[in-house]
Design a protein around this nucleic acid. Structure first.
Lengths: 348, 348
DNA sequence: TCAAAAGTGTTATCCTTACACCCATGT
DNA sequence: ACATGGGTGTAAGGATAACACTTTTGA
């Protein structure tokens, strides 16, 4: 807990001491590259071909090297291009974590401590085809409980809820503080909308971390991870098939952030091709936000809100009447504050 | 632009190479500690007592040392406690930057490259008194153009707008691409609400960076900074009196983030004492969001929204009739999504 | 007494939800 | 013909912005 000696010495003027006195650390960069292909929300992963287990992979990532790249973002783009061939559009920082490795955690140990800066990078469907090193997977392969496109997912009612309920419950107060149980109950209520609370699609990370603690997802714990989790909680089937290690946390944060920002910024259009029909736009929003929430009002909101403008062209072969094609009206950026796809849940 | 050799070699499996191969970097932490005292929004700065110039200072900051602290946040709390004596409540990451020093930029050079993780930390008014090493200053001392509490600030109309308008204008096309000018015009429109665009109180950082580029704020440039700014743009009086160096950018981001989150999360209550009157709450919101926007409807929204509950007590000596005291109803966290102080501008 | 703030009540307006219905295409 | 998606209109309901007015204190 004590600071290194040289800091204490030079403490009085209270200014930060020169940075070169500090302990050197490796800084990592990693990217959750998200896209929507068809009606499926996808993420780009780099397969771990060396490994046997099918399904293993990692987000594109690499170390930040100030000698090579002036900015964090430049470094990120470099590694993404190198590992996946994808040229990123806009990116945004999601969070910065300590010790955020991929699925290889155990082997890499953490002797060289790492700080990872995590990015969200939406790309268009055209970018979303397997190429070079990249493989695209559905988000919902990693987080099936987040998929509300066809109503409440079954894995929630059938597996997660009962197990979490039990994991929380006061039945296990043995040597545990009641405060702990209370915290769990509260966290469960907030994250998984128990007792009349509303499901908040943005709380992706909170849900993932709860499931991780409860042992319902994550790496099989061959070496008991401290014994804090009772044996019985190891019984339920693991839900999260493909493995991402700590990168799953990053993906969860990125999805949460995307869901958040879709509502108040025009990010969806970074996921759309240049021209699109309103139906396609709606499907994309639904793929991201989960619940299939709206109806024809969606069209009115989007068009009336000045977010898009018709190109004059039409798309045929839509399965019905030909649809007008639209493009994003980038002028909204100049006109309106918070031009997102504001939406309240409806009943289809 | 080429990656270090060992990366190219181990490229094919496309997995991230072990982190210890990476270049070691110093990781810094710094905190924009924000509070509202009376009607004034304040930030904690650490004065640079060594220096002559009155007004110099820096945000509390220090290097992250994984040997000392397991998490970034623990390190942050340590340095803040050390330098200011303040015990932080909740904190949130705002951004991570490369080379973010305080006002000492020039001397520290950047030979040991630094990545800084920047935090926003709201604290209650009780914490907001000068103690130990901390000094509290109004935000608006640094960013007077952000202060819309008494209507549009004069420095905007009288100084900033004319100079920026000129700085943008096509008058200076000499050896400059028109695209550059267009970008400037657009950025000006967005950031400073030119031509019918609405003032967006959240774009604090965009405004600061524009002013910085235009030479209206920032350190006096004794050593021409590359000659990209014409001499005439050096004439306008500097607006930003106290100096923070790169930390000003951090402060701007933090203010923007706070303004953003006040509207959709119950962060204001982290800035309030345990009990308060609705008027005090309103004043606090106004101190942050700038425009004095609402009216008695504010009370209805806040109370009706279930954000607060009366304690039963009253406060006398309010300047008028005694006011009911309220406390934050922390249950909203369980009930509602996005429980912020949603507000639209009004006319007083 | 007045100024300042605390409160209460009411109305007009807008926004959005929800429903109903017609249009055009491909199978 | 019909299923599917495209597209228009409108009525009911809720939220809130705006206004008017009363109450209670301190100076």
């Amino acid at each position: 807990m004590d600071p290194p000696a040289h800091y204490v010495e030079s403490m009085l003027p209270a200014r930060v001491p020169p940075a070169r006195a500090a302990e050197p650390i490796s800084v990592g960069l990693n990217a959750a590259i998200l896209a929507v292909r068809g009606d499926e929300p996808m993420v780009a992963v780099v397969p771990a071909s060396r490994r046997e287990r099918e399904g293993d992979g990692a987000l594109p990532c690499g170390p930040f090297s100030p000698r090579q790249h002036k900015t964090l973002e430049a470094g990120l783009r470099f590694w993404v291009r190198q590992q996946t061939g994808i040229e990123l559009g806009h990116t945004r920082q999601v969070c910065t974590l300590v010790d955020c490795h991929g699925p290889d955690d155990r082997e890499m140990a953490s002797d060289p401590p790492v700080v990872s800066v995590c990015y969200l990078a939406p790309v268009r469907p055209a970018q979303c085809n397997d190429q070079d090193g990249a493989v695209w997977r559905s988000w919902y392969a990693y987080f099936p409980w987040e998929d509300w496109r066809r109503g409440k997912p079954r894995c929630l009612t059938e597996i997660i809820e009962p197990h979490l309920e039990a994991w929380t419950g006061p039945a296990h107060c043995e040597a545990r503080v009641p405060r702990e149980a209370l915290n769990r109950t509260q966290r469960l209520r907030i994250a998984f909308a128990r007792d009349a609370a509303a499901w908040d699609e943005e709380k992706v990370l909170e849900r993932y971390e709860l499931l991780l603690e409860a042992g319902l997802v994550g790496e099989p714990a061959e070496n008991g991870d401290g014994g804090h989790v009772l044996a019985e909680w190891r019984q339920p089937p693991r839900l999260c098939h493909p493995l991402l290690g700590d990168h799953a946390r990053v993906l969860a944060s990125a999805i949460g952030e995307l869901r958040r920002s879709v509502k108040c910024e025009p990010v969806i259009f970074e996921l759309m091709p240049d021209v699109f029909t309103l139906f396609e736009l709606q499907k994309t929003v639904e793929a991201i936000l989960g619940p299939h929430l709206h109806k024809q009002n969606f069209r009115r909101l989007v068009e009336g809100g000045g977010l898009v403008e018709p190109t004059g062209e039409h798309r045929f072969r839509t399965g019905g009447r030909p649809a007008r094609l639209y493009r994003f009206r980038s002028d909204v950026l100049l006109e309106r504050l918070a031009p997102g796809v504001r939406i309240k849940a409806g009943r289809g």
